[in-house]
């Protein structure tokens, strides 16, 4: 049942121009940035030869590319997640789901996986770009895999937050604005950690940036994975509760 809902969600996404526009925009901007990073690498190359154990293409091109793509994903993710529930509430089609023998958990998970499937396509497309360097140089596949895992966990967290905001609002635009604001907050909350020594650990722990940056360096830490899993799970559970409470008391 979760699968049917997820497939319908994915199908509807690709039937609307929005999905194609987002894919196009991301590919265009990422390609431009990719060329920029390669260019930068060429200018650095004479210097790098002099250094022992110098950083390679993976560190100087692919890691910054993945890092940059997170900002794009942050901007575009709310546009996809905003419609997940609020649009269905707005046009009344949520009543079809609610009157069907489907549980709230199935509805939320179906919606979540539908959006996640779309963004897996997006991050795979982004991942293909640096892989094109494979023919001309040695790549650190371990680091790339760690980076991809980081991308996946980050977007999984983004979507769960977006889904929750969408469950709160009847207007997709409100859901988008809320998601956008909170995502940026989670992105920059570690600035406070850097400013004061006391709160450093706490604010760093809350921040998405702090946990995703390690994976770009090739370090896969259980604590980081736990952060993303808890983050996503937490907002998924909140969405289920929110949907259920709307049925009980509105």
């Amino acid at each position: 049942m979760i699968l049917h809902i997820a497939l319908r969600e994915l199908r509807s996404l690709f039937l609307s121009p929005l999905a194609w526009i987002i894919l196009g925009v991301i590919q265009g901007i990422m390609a431009w940035k990719f060329l920029g990073f390669i260019d930068y690498f060429f200018t650095l190359q004479p210097e790098l030869i002099k250094i022992k154990n110098a950083p390679g293409v993976t560190d100087l091109v692919i890691a910054p590319l993945f890092d940059f793509s997170k900002i794009l994903l942050l901007i575009l993710c709310p546009l996809i997640t905003m419609r997940l529930l609020s649009e269905e509430k707005q046009n009344g089609s949520l009543k079809l789901l609610l009157s069907s023998p489907v549980s709230m958990t199935e509805i939320i998970l179906g919606k979540y996986l539908g959006a996640l499937a779309f963004f897996i396509i997006v991050i795979l497309m982004i991942g293909l770009m640096p892989l094109s360097l494979f023919s001309s140089t040695d790549l650190d596949m371990g680091k790339i895999a760690a980076g991809m895992l980081g991308q996946f966990l980050t977007i999984a967290a983004f979507i769960s937050l977006g889904l929750y905001m969408s469950s709160l609002s009847n207007q997709p635009v409100n859901a988008a604005a809320g998601t956008f604001g909170l995502l940026i907050l989670f992105f920059i909350i570690n600035i406070a950690g850097n400013a004061t020594t006391q709160g450093e650990n706490f604010f760093n722990y809350l921040s998405i940036t702090h946990h995703s940056i390690q994976m770009l360096r090739g370090i896969v830490n259980t604590a980081d994975i736990a952060y993303f899993v808890l983050f996503s799970l937490g907002f998924i559970l909140l969405s289920i509760r929110q949907l259920d409470s709307q049925r009980l008391q509105s």
Binding site: M1, H4, I5, R8, R11, S12, L15, S16, N91, G92, S93, L94, K95, L96, L97, S99, S100, P101, V102
Partner: peptide
């Protein structure tokens, strides 16, 4: 709920689907 068919005051449609796609989805639900 398997024994219930419900038409709300506003039909719960997905405008981007075709009639067959939509009804198949409704049956699967």
């Amino acid at each position: 709920k398997k024994n219930i068919g419900y038409l709300p005051d506003k039909p719960p449609l997905y405008p981007e689907l075709t009639v067959t796609e939509y009804l198949t989805y409704a049956a699967k639900l």
